[in-house]
Nucleic acid binder design. Structure first.
Length: 297
DNA sequence: CTCCAGCCTC
DNA sequence: GAGGCAGGAG
């Protein structure tokens, strides 16, 4: 991996300076937010935009201010409170992570990267995000926004291509300021820049704090050359949508829902069957003698 | 249509 | 490494 000249001068100072005034006032960035509340935000933000997360997050941290509070309730309550954020396995994983934190860490969110990675539902991004944003430790944090910022500003490419975790972490590490606090701000600022200025569809280069350092701009905005991302399959009429419809019924019911009742909200029997089987396999639905319920454990 | 603070399983 | 996983917004 060649060293890019820009790595040494760095985009970090300009991004940090910009972030100081451009940061959105997101509630999980407040100074008095607990590591647990940051952890909850990071689970919710996996593949889900800020605007949809904010109300659910407020409700969650008010209702379950500690891992122990969540772990004390059945998983069904977590799945209900997840509401329609999507990917409801995350609610189950978050409930399990809370239980693991109580069992392994005395109810305190661990600060160690490997301990975080060992928790259910926490991968390379989320572990570093918690260590960096909740504890202020110096780790490279790379989400889809930061990947795009690096691809453009450093590599001069419109897109980063398929995610490659080791490569992306190394690239961010090269850009990361040595100072802990500066590293924290650069991690957050790079994500913010990608989310609000250096966006995928219509980057606002006129508002970009590193436009004069950007390799993509300098190269004349060359189009992306790499492999096309697979086209996302249609949601309407999909198995995913069917799962969502079943989950909506189970969340609302507070009792067992019979298969016949589910057939009323989904007219494709084969699709309904696949959805139910998938949800049971994922632990999001439990088969009882009367029908299906949310998991209690 | 594409994109979104990814992770898990195979 | 590829595929599956919700749902909303642009």
């Amino acid at each position: 991996m060649p060293q890019h000249p820009i790595d040494r001068g760095g985009i970090a100072p300009a991004v940090v300076a910009w972030f100081a005034h451009a940061a959105r006032p997101l509630p999980w960035r407040a100074a008095d937010v607990s590591p647990w509340a940051v952890l909850v935000s990071e689970f919710m933000l996996q593949q889900t935009q800020v605007g949809r997360v904010q109300p659910r997050w407020e409700e969650w941290v008010r209702r379950w201010p500690t891992p122990a509070a969540l772990a004390a309730e059945p998983a069904s309550e977590a799945v209900r409170a997840w509401d329609r954020l999507g990917y409801p396995r995350r609610a189950l994983w978050l409930h399990r992570a809370a239980t693991e934190i109580v069992e392994r860490h005395g109810g305190e969110v661990p600060r160690d990267l490997d301990a975080l990675l060992a928790l259910q539902g926490i991968g390379p991004y989320t572990a570093r995000a918690i260590a960096a944003f909740a504890f202020g430790d110096r780790h490279p944090v790379v989400d889809t926004n930061t990947r795009r910022v690096i691809a453009r500003a450093v590599d001069g490419a419109a897109e980063s291509g398929p995610p490659a975790t080791a490569r992306d972490l190394a690239a961010m590490e090269r850009l990361l300021p040595p100072d802990r606090e500066a590293a924290h701000r650069f991690n957050a600022g790079a994500m913010e820049l990608g989310a609000t200025v250096c966006t995928a569809r219509a980057p606002r280069c006129d508002a970009c704090p590193i436009a004069d350092l950007c390799a993509w701009r300098a190269a004349g905005y060359p189009a992306y050359e790499g492999p096309r991302r697979a086209r996302q399959t249609r949601f309407e009429g999909s198995d995913r949508q069917a799962r969502g419809k079943v989950m909506r019924e189970l969340r609302a019911a507070h009792r067992a829902v019979a298969g016949d009742e589910l057939a009323r909200v989904l007219d494709d029997p084969a699709r309904l069957e696949r959805a139910i089987e998938g949800l049971v396999a994922d632990g999001l639905a439990v088969r009882t003698s009367d029908g299906y319920v949310l998991p209690e454990v």
